[in-house]
Design a protein around this nucleic acid. Structure first.
Lengths: 250, 250
DNA sequence: CGACTTGTTGAGCCCATTCAATGCTAGTGG
DNA sequence: CCACTAGCATTGAATGGGCTCAACAAGTCG
């Protein structure tokens, strides 16, 4: 395996900048101290790199510290389906730890930093830190929520609705984490990622995006996404509200 | 609310017939005793009934004891997407308990019996029965696996592949639970359920099913599904293997 | 018996796909 | 500075998979 993951200076959990971000929960000192024990390293990966491969046995246990990533699956002939997108605070690789092999792959979308944890101590977490264990379950359930929504989108929304719904979903999540950029939010996806998340062809995804921006719904430029008319977009995309996406992490 | 749920004689967990089924785990006496405490009732619902509605706050906590059910979501105009199917041993309503409201509905496919649990004691489960808590997380992760797979199917498989993949998936799960019926397994889905699980139209689903059975892949008759050529079906459906489906519960 | 659910089949259309070509931007190396 | 490459976005044209509409068969139930 090539060496492209760089070590960084380890950020202790008790002073993690993510804790200050809006939706994070306040833990007891005891829990935070345990997290620090659990934490092994602070690692960086460049954009476009697979950090977990489907089939890996005992893949590493990470938490996304900064940057974007996504989970995906492949068919034997190469067709790709993106399952959901990962933002700072999201766990990586826990599913693979629960089964004999990871059922999916994880790839970085941007340069990222991840916190790596000692796999062997997960059981201890359940035994002596029930609050953390509960939250781990909560995070797993939350991720399932996102996949459920994406399945509804891919299965039952038209291409135009689907593209709109995905943009809104990602906007809300990035917004809740404060990933702003002059009027909009950071948006590192290519049209190929959008197509593979929605089960559409690249060409049709492009045409749908153009149509949406042409009727003044949104704009994507220089890696930032801005909504000109968010309410109209929600209506077009057949969305009521998505409280889970807006309040991401405990 | 109409009264159509019937009370049955309460089956204590320590003598639950599901424990004898292949893939179930052996728990410590202490854990089983706690489960018995946790268990409130044993309830029956008839086929085609919603037992959890999207938006319900604090929905009941169930475990499917016998029969089939499914989780689904609706768009405002009525389009339905089935997320995954529930078989005996599967938990129901835990996601709704984790958020302020249930993000999806659950409907019975057959007459079912469910075990209902005291919601208020879930936290105690995490605090004093880490093994059970871990397994609850495991079950949540396993369900996500199924949804991931279904998303891959709906998004990237052709109609013919998709129908084949769904039939195989359900066959494996029912088989692992011993739900046999003269050469095949119990299969209570209508073509409408298949269509809504795969994001296809009813008509096209029918034509795909007919094509598959016409080329000798399978047969569905009197509520039982039989494969005439399982290996060929797996190849056609672009499936390698699905270890998670075959080994369902712990 | 009529009402209803489920499955089946044909006809025609359209949304989304594939194929193909082009422009744009950034990076690389001479 | 320019030639060359590579990745991404864009657009048109033609095809087709899956859609809607419509009608009908068969079984079940009150």
């Amino acid at each position: 395996m090539s060496f492209s993951a760089g070590m960084l200076n380890n950020v202790p959990c008790h002073s993690c900048p993510l804790r200050a971000k809006g939706p994070f929960k306040d833990y007891a000192d005891r829990d935070i101290r345990f997290l620090d024990e659990l934490k092994k390293d602070h690692v960086a990966f460049e954009a476009g790199r697979d950090i977990v491969m489907a089939g890996d046995t005992d893949p590493p246990l990470y938490t996304l510290f900064s940057g974007w990533a996504f989970r995906y699956k492949l068919l034997p002939d190469g067709r790709r389906q993106i399952l959901n997108f990962l933002l700072p605070g999201d766990p990586i690789g826990f599913q693979g730890h629960m089964f004999e092999a990871s059922p999916h792959s994880v790839q970085t979308l941007t340069d990222v930093e991840v916190c790596s944890f000692h796999r062997s101590k997960i059981w201890e977490l359940f035994r002596s830190h029930p609050e953390l264990a509960f939250d781990l379950t909560w995070l797993t359930a939350r991720e399932e929520c996102f996949v459920d929504d994406n399945l509804l989108t891919a299965g039952r929304r038209s291409a135009l609705e689907a593209v709109g719904a995905l943009l809104i979903h990602l906007y809300k999540r990035a917004d809740a984490l404060g990933m702003h950029r002059n009027g909009g939010v950071e948006f590192p996806l290519t049209q190929n990622h959008i197509a593979d998340a929605l089960g559409l062809s690249l060409v049709h995804t492009n045409k749908s995006l153009r149509k949406l921006s042409k009727i003044g719904m949104h704009e994507i430029k220089n890696g930032t996404l801005t909504f000109m008319n968010g309410r109209a977009m929600e209506k077009l995309a057949q969305i009521f509200d998505d409280p889970v996406a807006a309040r991401p992490l405990l």
